Computed example of a mutant assay.
Amino acid sequence: MSALPYRPCAGVMLVNRDGHVFVGQRLDTTLEAWQMPQGGIDPGEDALTAAVRELGEETGIAPEHVELLAAPDRDFTYDLPPELIGKVWKGKWRGQTQRWFLFRFLGQDPDVNIATKHPEFRAWRWIDPDDLPRLIVPFKRALYQDVLAALRPHLGASPSR
């Protein structure tokens, strides 16, 4: 396992006007697994561009409906559980190294459309940020606690206009 590299990834914490965070329920599991939008960074792509692209691919939210509030100056890493190594991502990665971004959602709920070209979520909702670690799959719980701690000071920030 330790010989495998980490998959470079970008993640998005999307907060609405009420201070709630977007989560989607994954299509590829029967678990009650909810997560924030995230995905791989393509070769030659920077993390912010990947985050905006992944947000659109997974939620249908257009770039004009979000505004960047914060981005921690560090990466967050997690390892897959041993039983998943070799089964996900074609066995190429041992986990992910993620760069996270906090965006304010400037649109309305009808601007969210998870029925995208390659859907990843079966349902979505806005939740209290404190509920994030409880809703994520257990092997990502510590990662979500770390991301939440890093972004919490910015959750009440106003979009710059």
Rank of each mutant, 00 (worst) to 15 (best):
L132C: 11
F103N: 03
T97P: 00
V15C: 10
R141H: 09
E45D: 06
D75P: 00
E57R: 15
P110Q: 08
D131Q: 15
R134H: 08
G95P: 04
T77C: 08
A62H: 14
G39A: 10
P138G: 07
I61R: 04
Q25D: 06
S158C: 05
G44M: 09
P110K: 12
D75C: 13
P37V: 04
Y144H: 12
D130Q: 15
E67Q: 15
L84P: 03
V88P: 01
H65F: 12
G56R: 07
K117D: 10
D79W: 05
E57T: 08
G39H: 02
I127S: 06
I114Q: 04
M13I: 14
E120N: 13
L106K: 11
L68P: 02
E57S: 13
T59D: 05
V137Y: 03
Q145T: 10
W89H: 11
L31C: 09
E45L: 05
A115N: 14
G24C: 11
Y78C: 07
P5D: 02
A71C: 13
R161D: 13
G91K: 08
V15A: 06
A47C: 06
P119A: 14
I41G: 00
A149E: 11
H65M: 14
G40S: 14
G11T: 07
D28M: 09
R152A: 15
L155K: 03
K140L: 13
L135K: 08
A47I: 05
A33N: 11
E120P: 01
T77K: 08
W89D: 14
L55H: 06
D18K: 13
P133I: 08
H20E: 15
S2M: 07
L68I: 08
R17G: 15
H65W: 04
G60L: 08
V15Y: 00
L151E: 01
W126C: 08
K90L: 11
Q96T: 13
I85K: 06
T59K: 09
R104G: 03
G40V: 13
A10L: 04
A157Y: 01
L151M: 04
F139N: 04
D111W: 02
A142N: 10
P43T: 13
G91T: 06
P153I: 02
N113H: 12
W100V: 07
F121L: 09
E45K: 10
Y6A: 11
Q98P: 00
L151Y: 01
F105W: 01
M36P: 02
A115H: 14
A3W: 03
L102V: 05
S160Q: 12
G56K: 07
L68V: 06
W126N: 10
L132E: 07
G56V: 00
A71V: 06
W89Y: 13
D130I: 08
R141N: 08
P63D: 03
P129C: 06
I41Y: 01
G156C: 10
G60W: 04
A150M: 05
P81L: 10
G56S: 09
P138H: 11
G107N: 09
P8K: 14
Q38K: 09
V12S: 03
A51W: 00
Y144V: 12
L148N: 10
P153L: 05
Q25H: 13
W34N: 02
W100T: 03
P81N: 11
L14D: 02
V52E: 07
I41M: 03
A150D: 11
P81I: 09
D42V: 07
